[in-house]
Design a protein around this nucleic acid. Structure first.
Lengths: 143, 143
DNA sequence: GTACATGCAAATTCTTTGCAACCCA
DNA sequence: TGGGTTGCAAAGAATTTGCATGTAC
């Protein structure tokens, strides 16, 4: 984890972005809450406990930056706000099972899509960079 | 197409919703612009040419209603607004290829996901009602 | 020292809501 | 007729922006 942070700092540094305390605490907050699909507001409240003076605009600007750098992935679950999580390109992609009753979002891993992707790429001349699969339904508890 | 409209009117009627002229023109506008992934504002401008007095709030209320009835599907392409299209449950699901350069959204059909879905359903006890696959990359023209 | 970052508040944008007038069934 | 619907304007919610001040490098 410290290793991951270092890697990110280096990525920022390489592109001449400053490693500000705000950026550090925001990254730490996200890192300490894995698989939480945090919104800007979520991160704001997490970070305000240690850095009360931080502004919500800084959160938004930082999240935008990190998403541009492909460090975070910006996602949307149709609940009116964007949510963010690490974009671990080295790991397998994971997808989301969204319960329409309780709203819980679970994750699952999968490789099956890869065969599908190569087929699409060939057929449509589309260069695939990323994908997102959302499955809606009722989770075990609500079913 | 007239048949589809009739089916929708019947669905509305069955649930005691009124078939107002506004609802009719909104449905027609969406029907006459297939595969366009229209936003509320898009539909507003389409409809205003023939019904200048219509209000944007009516568009939103109608789209909400139609999405609740699963006549439309509400989708999100991270461009800051919701987009809508018919939810043709009888047809095969189609998914989206989103170009990160020009923003074009193309569709493709697929059944491969079904094997994946039954596996998930069994393993996680998750009852699947719907799914959405988005693939990001560069389209043929931008590549 | 300087250009990039931040905090604050105001502005924007999308969407929702309250309410009186309206009109489909 | 009467309750669902509409249009309008105002309210809300999420996100962005302008600008003076602050600070990483």
């Amino acid at each position: 984890m410290a290793q991951k942070l270092e890697w990110i700092f280096r990525k920022l540094h390489d592109r001449e972005y400053k490693i500000t305390p705000q950026r550090q605490v925001i990254l730490k907050a996200i890192m300490e809450n894995p698989s939480q699909h945090l919104s800007a507001e979520d991160i704001y409240s997490l970070v305000k406990t240690t850095n009360p003076e931080i502004g919500l605009a800084t959160i938004y600007r930082t999240l935008d930056l990190l998403a541009d750098l492909e460090i975070l992935q910006k996602m949307n679950f149709n609940d009116g706000r964007s949510r963010y999580e690490f974009n671990d390109q080295d790991e397998h992609h994971h997808h989301h099972l969204i319960c329409l009753r309780c709203g819980k979002v679970a994750e699952f891993e999968d490789d099956l899509l890869e065969t599908l992707e190569t087929a699409i790429a060939k057929k449509r001349g589309f260069e695939i960079l990323d994908h997102q699969l959302k499955i809606y339904g009722h989770c075990k508890d609500c079913h």
